[in-house]
Design a protein around this nucleic acid. Structure first.
Lengths: 227, 227
DNA sequence: TCGTAGAAGTTGTCAGTGTCTACATTGTTG
DNA sequence: CAACAATGTAGACACTGACAACTTCTACGA
């Protein structure tokens, strides 16, 4: 086990991986731009330009780790918000708002998570990211099953498609709205919460009256890597 | 050095700007990756590595032009689809489907358009892009006004917010769905059309019964550059 | 007609980047 | 305590985006 108790680190850093990811999150927040260099990151971490390669195979892997950290922050935030309510409807509402806020408050990180930087030519999303994203989706599904869209939906195989449809609808709307807001393509950022609230409200109302039923054969889930 | 070889181009290309943008679109489609170099583009266009700088101030401006071309392709495609129908409801449906298809068929381009590559630290979206995006939105708004969500909404100042809400709802859902599909975060790409259809159907049904009303003071539109 | 200003394309250069290889330092373990 | 793997450092390389200076062509007014 590492023991970096001394404030003056020796040759071995002991916790460089986490430090680098944290530095990346900082840069992202400060500059709001994805155009930072691996070397700048190393500099900021007070380490030689090649040290990160001992923890990440290449830059993509590093960015994937940062993105994964973003997903974890997101799920944690949503979980915290959910804990404030008992009514599933309110929970779902709080969850979606947390999602939007997370994206709007840190657009660059959100872009990294969803902007397609990592879903390159052949290589699908890195596994580390997929796992984190899956947890996010599971949380959303949980609240919906508990009755987020108006009534509880028992998690039977018969309801599978119904649930998947509701999850997809919620996620799509909130996802798109967040992107548009973060982009500045619509509306002022300041008042986004009110805007988002009414929109989400509308969606949930619509969803409550008629749940879309997905056609058979469709399958909602992460794309499994073929290798 | 370079002599005028028959109908081969001479020193002056004549139409390099368009050729470069087209080459960029090709690369995007072939590699499905945003990581191409300006120099590779020049090579592909059969031109020296610095020629593009006579037409674009820097790489950002070039990418903005490519993104703008993407928006134009999108609006054109939507317009074509709309022309096949007279019923506003069907028109809206066709329009949204065209939007989704456009994104799913060329994820890299879609990422460039919406992934936040260009909305850097301070500089908002380039004007050329904003103009193109605005036309897209106008078309969507037009169909909605004509009755896309069930009944016509006269374009009075009283209905301004109602229209804006509907536009935002439609765009958000479709935008988010497209991103999720293109990302491969949900569902298989193959069957996406069926998936999208039912989802859009659900949204429209929900929207028809209850249009969300935006709170006063919110304003839906592109963020104006401070120039 | 011509000659010149400027647009369009070229070559050369520079700092900075991602990644590779070789080397140095460390903590761990037999 | 010595060998070893993990971790960090130093140097090198091809490539990138951008700048400056040069060349080639085209348009246009006297």
């Amino acid at each position: 086990m590492p023991k970096p108790q001394s404030h003056e680190r020796a040759y071995h850093h002991g916790d460089l991986r986490r430090v680098i990811v944290k530095a990346a999150l900082e840069i992202l927040r400060e500059t709001q731009s994805l155009e930072f260099s691996l070397r700048e990151l190393a500099r900021r971490a007070g380490v030689s330009h090649n040290a990160p390669y001992k923890h990440f195979a290449d830059k993509h892997e590093l960015l994937a780790a940062v993105s994964g950290a973003g997903f974890e922050m997101l799920t944690e935030r949503m979980a915290n918000e959910i804990a404030n309510f008992r009514n599933p409807r309110e929970q779902l509402f709080a969850l979606l708002r947390a999602y939007i806020d997370h994206g709007v408050e840190n657009p660059a990180l959100y872009s990294l998570m969803f902007g397609g930087y990592l879903t390159g030519p052949n290589h699908g999303r890195p596994a580390i990211e997929l796992a984190a994203a899956e947890k996010t989706k599971a949380m959303l599904a949980g609240v919906i099953i508990a009755g987020g869209v108006g009534r509880a939906i028992p998690h039977t195989s018969r309801n599978e498609r119904k649930i998947a449809g509701a999850v997809l609808a919620c996620w799509s709307l909130v996802h798109g709205l967040t992107l548009l807001l973060a982009d500045g393509l619509v509306g002022p950022k300041k008042k986004s919460s009110a805007l988002a609230d009414t929109l989400v409200q509308g969606l949930l109302d619509g969803l409550a009256t008629e749940l879309p039923v997905l056609p058979p054969g469709t399958w909602v889930g992460p794309q499994v890597p073929t290798s």
